[in-house]
Simulated assay, not measured.
Amino acid sequence: MIILTVDLGTQTGWALQTREGHILSGSESFKPHRFEGGGMRFLRFKRWLTEVKGADGLDAVFFEEVRAHAGVDAAHVYGGFMGQLTAWCEHHQIPYQGVPVGTIKKHATGKGNASKANMLEAARQRGFTPVDDNEADALALLQWAISQEQTS
Rank of each mutant, 00 (worst) to 15 (best):
A140I: 07
A114Y: 05
G112T: 08
E51H: 11
D56E: 15
A114F: 07
H33Q: 15
F42P: 02
S29K: 12
D132W: 08
T103N: 07
A74V: 07
F81Y: 11
N113F: 09
I94H: 04
V52F: 00
W88T: 03
I3D: 00
R44E: 10
P100V: 03
I2C: 02
T12C: 14
F35K: 15
E90L: 15
A136K: 05
A87M: 13
E149K: 15
G110F: 10
F30C: 05
T18H: 10
L141M: 15
G79Q: 11
K106M: 11
S29L: 07
I2Y: 01
T50N: 12
Y78I: 06
R34K: 14
F128H: 12
R34T: 11
Q11D: 11
F42T: 05
A123M: 06
E20R: 14
G9E: 08
D137E: 13
G83I: 02
G127D: 08
G71W: 02
R126L: 11
M82S: 12
F30W: 10
Q17Y: 00
G98F: 10
A140G: 13
G37I: 03
A75F: 11
I23V: 15
H76L: 15
Q11V: 11
Q97N: 06
D59V: 03
R19M: 06
Y78H: 12
Q93Y: 04
N118Y: 04
S25M: 04
E28L: 12
M40A: 14
S152W: 10
L85P: 02
E36W: 12
L24G: 00
W14I: 04
H107E: 00
H33A: 13
S147A: 15
E65K: 14
N134V: 05
R126F: 01
V66E: 05
R67C: 07
R67F: 14
D59E: 14
G21N: 07
H69Y: 11
L141K: 01
T5A: 07
Q11E: 13
